[in-house]
Design a protein around this nucleic acid. Structure first.
Lengths: 188, 188
DNA sequence: TCTTGATAGTATCGAGTCGATATTATTGCA
DNA sequence: TGCAATAATATCGACTCGATACTATCAAGA
């Protein structure tokens, strides 16, 4: 397979940036489905995979590298469309949580990502790993949060009854260990 | 190096989409430099690497998966800022070409992509290849154009005096063989 | 307890992008 | 000559963007 390089005189760093410039545009275009734009779709997808501590506007803002003001509007737009519902937090009265409604779940299901033609399983595997590396480096460069799975966090503790979070000092529901957490820190 | 997967139950395809959702946002945030937004910056970068046949609004629109209307405004915005200048095509009076001004070149140079910390040379190489694959598959899925380098095109012909394009039936300047072409089709 | 500072979220601003649609030139083909 | 295709722009409402200002709430220290 011949792989066309974009610019022969480019460093790998510059080429990655140039490729990302285009790739992010191509990806974004494919993510505008129905009456959702790219950001709304990404926020909805995030909310569907985040645990109950991580569905607040500020967590979405951190995850999507957006300001709180913008995310506030995005979530309001999703709520207007009936795809998410706002819930007040019981512990901290400043915090609001946005959960998917059944309509939100259905919307997500009917707009699943398209298959990627022309890629072997091995290539797909390599691409996933490369993207994980790239996200990790992007986060390191900008001081963002990792937002990994609860199960892979240094604060996750498995017990006989189930598991709990040593940071929040809370018992976890079985499914929560496989959800994204705002407070995630990679195990040492 | 432990690589946190986003969702253990996810297929690679879904994981790639989820990773791209976030990576797109992180990359875009890093590309908003000075008074340029992500799209303006990407368009400016494209124009700096495209050959003279590929600097028209419609080519930029194809490259960035945007509509002509949007690109028209983007280029107008860049022109207002003095970073590009409009030139009428001599062959086809419908076509306009946008070339970088010296200010545009300087802006591009002073906003070069940041280094990617925490990545080895080997990882960087792998990532570049994975992204090339991903772009290729995205194009295949949506019927877009490849936009490769002139030199790697099936219409590129090397001669004793230099090179020429068999599609446009034109002699090429020496530097044009290493620029991006709108009409690019990968060599067979 | 009172104050102070940090945090969570919203409201608002102008600039710009988005898709969609319509319109004007211009080209090329029948 | 006529007609369809192409290139580009103009305009519309919805939305994102960063920036700024604002309110509400929490937490920690005097």
């Amino acid at each position: 397979m011949i792989l066309t390089r974009y610019y022969l005189g480019m460093t790998n760093r510059d080429e990655i940036s140039a490729l990302l410039d285009r790739l992010t545009r191509l990806h974004a275009a494919g993510r505008r489905v129905g009456d959702l734009n790219e950001v709304q779709r990404a926020a909805l997808d995030y909310l569907s995979r985040a645990n109950r501590f991580s569905r607040a506007p500020s967590a979405v803002a951190d995850y999507l590298a957006a300001t709180r003001g913008t995310v506030s509007q995005t979530l309001r737009s999703l709520a207007r469309k009936g795809l998410v519902a706002e819930t007040a937090s019981s512990e901290d009265r400043r915090v609001r949580r946005y959960d998917l409604t059944p309509e939100g779940v259905a919307t997500l299901a009917t707009t699943a990502p398209a298959a990627r033609p022309g890629l072997t399983d091995a290539e797909t595997q390599d691409i996933a790993e490369a993207l994980r590396n790239l996200v990790r480096s992007e986060i390191a460069a900008n001081g963002g949060r990792s937002f990994g799975l609860c199960r892979t966090c240094r604060h996750h503790v498995s017990t006989a009854e189930g598991s709990h979070c040593a940071l929040l000092k809370l018992a976890l529901l079985p499914e929560e260990a496989d959800q994204i957490c705002h407070e995630h820190r990679a195990a040492a």
